[in-house]
Computed example of a mutant assay.
Amino acid sequence: MKIVVNGRFLTQPVTGVQRFAIEIVRALINSGHSLQVVAPRGVQDLKLAEEFDVQYIGGSIRGYLWEQLVLPFYCKAQEGPVFLINLTNTAPVVLKQQLVTIHDIATFTHPEFYSKKFVLVYRVMIPLIVRRSFDVVTVSDFSKRELVNRFRVPEGKVSVVSNAISAVFDEAVEDEIKPGPYILAVSSLAPSKNLARLIQAFGVYRRSGGLCRLLVVGAGNSGDRVFTATEALSNGSDDEDVVFLGRVTDTELVSLYRNADLFVHASLYEGFGIPPLEAMSCGTACVVSDIPSLREVCGDAAVYVDPLDVQSISAGMMRVLGCQELVRQMIDRGKERASLFDWTVSAEKIHDVISRHR
């Protein structure tokens, strides 16, 4: 049976969803599994396309049209059976012999986070591909429960395959970024990321005598545009010690994590939550939202706060920054916790799911 990977994710800006796809494909290839990545034109990282030996199909057709028309036609035109792997929420609705990865169902549980058009497309597509596909993968037990309960699919049809840490986080990097004491956040302007309350909480922390600045890494809602200080501060604070760094390289991000006094992740909703895992792996104490998915990721290695309560978020910051013994405990626990997640293990789980059909 030929294994084909839906490579449309290679044409998209890299967020946590695309990172999952990249690392799973890389781990499958490095483990010696045979597969063919196919993609439309417009791949953003040509080195990555070369690494994956991408086959381009569909001429100038891209996006949803490529995925719904060109990709299934390609699969059906192959000699012998084909099993399609989809790693970033969407998949051809006409195919059954495929695996689809649904990272979360926020468009159903929190439609207010997205545009009406986006919600409509996902509300039509997701139930169809979840019910028609042979297998469904998701990234946490929390997301599995939501999928099973929402779509009434058998639990055995849904497998949990966790995110993990990219290899760059294990590499030695020069710690060039040392802008004094700071709290780090990795966020977009998406409402689910709750950046406005985080900035308000930082303002409370500063007014209470806190010395750290807040550094924010991230892009705008479109994913490819760096948001400005004016955009974010209009939602939360006018504190001049909030610094917006925009997009950074992976190496720069590692340095920012490693040198931070504290990492804060105040999301309202996550299917998994990669940034806290990255922070823990870099030896940085974490304050995170008390929501099920982040409890699942961080275990006893983080301080939990109510993401809807500005005072709770600021109190979490002050609690950690005011106790070096707590920081040391959290660093040790965080590194141990992060070591439990591994891309090779996750890729083998994907391969095991596919092997059921051989």
Rank of each mutant, 00 (worst) to 15 (best):
V130M: 05
N221V: 07
L256G: 11
H357K: 14
S312I: 12
L189Y: 08
L268S: 03
L215Q: 11
D238Q: 15
A172V: 15
L84H: 00
A201V: 07
P275S: 08
P81W: 05
R206G: 00
D135G: 09
R131W: 12
V297D: 00
L211V: 14
L294Y: 03
P92Y: 01
L198P: 11
K349H: 06
K117G: 14
H103T: 04
E146Y: 00
P111Y: 01
A167Y: 03
F151I: 11
F118E: 12
L253M: 06
A164H: 02
P92E: 02
V320Y: 10
N30K: 13
G273H: 03
M318F: 10
R150V: 06
D352Q: 15
N6S: 12
P127I: 13
L69E: 07
I331T: 08
P275Q: 05
L99G: 04
L326N: 07
L69Q: 10
V153L: 02
S188E: 05
V137R: 02
N30H: 11
F169Q: 01
N6L: 09
V124E: 05
A229W: 13
Y64D: 09
I199A: 15
F20M: 00
V160R: 09
E296Q: 08
K335D: 10
D342Y: 10
V160N: 04
P154I: 11
T284C: 13
H110C: 03
V4Q: 07
E270A: 02
S208I: 04
M125N: 07
L211D: 13
A232G: 03
V158K: 09
V161L: 06
A164W: 04
V320G: 10
V216E: 10
I165W: 00
Y257R: 04
G7D: 06
N194W: 02
I29S: 11
R152G: 03
D104T: 00
L147Y: 07
D224R: 12
L256I: 12
Q329E: 15
S255K: 02
W343F: 09
P191V: 07
Y122G: 01
K2A: 10
C298Y: 00
L147Q: 11
L211S: 14
G283Y: 06
V160L: 08
A347R: 05
T228W: 03
I354Q: 07
F52A: 00
Q324S: 14
F202N: 09
L262Y: 05
I183P: 04
C212W: 01
L233C: 13
A172R: 15
D239T: 08
S31C: 07
E348D: 12
L71N: 00
V204N: 11
L99H: 02
S159M: 02
G316Y: 01
M125T: 13
R295P: 00
S314W: 09
G42S: 05
G59E: 02
S312R: 11
S34A: 12
V173I: 14
S289V: 09
A338I: 06
K144R: 15
A201T: 05
H103P: 01
L340K: 12
R145E: 15
V148F: 04
P154V: 04
A260S: 15
E23R: 05
V153P: 06
E67G: 07
I331N: 08
L69R: 13
L294F: 00
